[in-house]
Design a protein around this nucleic acid. Structure first.
Lengths: 124, 124
DNA sequence: TAAACATATGAACAAGTATTCATATGAGGG
DNA sequence: CCCTCATATGAATACTTGTTCATATGTTTA
């Protein structure tokens, strides 16, 4: 019974076996596969940093360029650019160039749905 | 115009001012305060690790003791115990003692709502 | 084409974190 | 009581990550 091994469910539990076998079997089958769980963890990594949360909230309100975000958050242009690259790699934000300026915006609405769930949880 | 300073909105933007002042003012007012955003980031940190995501999914299916989780995830008892402490500190899981055994379970349903949002996002 | 501006990027450093190892605490059974 | 089992914890280590600094790329304008 070990979800690590392609859900083949063969790991041994405590000698005392707190959980009945049928329950544990059901457990393995209901679990998403490890790759999916890893993708979920990676997704949430993007929301696990204050700077990135601020950026996402700002972009929810308006399309912004790098230097505007840097000014609004009182941080260096480089720091913001690095973080925007993280968010872009995760496909949470997209950008478009207009002359010298690069405008960033949220990729889709689902991102804000997740953040709102978090907001609701922390505000009870 | 700087949300860092208690939303007093007084930071300077790019010289080129990509965003009009009224838009930026609206931005500052709509943003949750920094403390709230920090709490959101802290909340998501709990979901930003594969081991913890696995644990939460397991606990969604059944109340489990430490050694069962360790066996199911093929990890050391100590590693699991450390992670459960993280999740307990964040009030995402609760526990009860029954003799030698300590059973862990999810604190509330909202936790799974957030994870499900993440799952939906990664599975498109 | 040179200068100025906006952004991107690589290396380095500091801070945070997940696991291991050894050990401590706590509970039940003999 | 002592022994065993289940869990917790502290220190150490390896790994990850966010920011800074210096610099490169790309675009516009003089």
């Amino acid at each position: 019974m070990n979800i690590e091994k392609e859900n083949d469910c063969a790991a041994e539990l405590c000698d005392v076996v707190q959980v009945h076998d049928d329950v544990v079997n059901a457990l393995c089958e209901k679990m998403p596969n490890v790759e999916t769980l890893d993708n979920i963890a990676d997704l949430f990594k993007n929301f696990a940093d204050l700077t990135r949360v601020k950026i996402l909230y700002l972009l929810h309100e308006a399309e912004l360029c790098v230097c505007d975000i840097a000014a609004l958050l009182d941080m260096s242009q480089s720091a913001i650019s690095h973080q925007l690259r993280v968010l872009k790699t995760a496909r949470l934000v997209k950008n478009r160039r207009d002359g010298k300026t690069v405008f960033y915006s949220l990729s889709d609405d689902h991102i804000m749905t997740i953040l709102t769930q978090g907001l609701e949880h922390v505000t009870e």
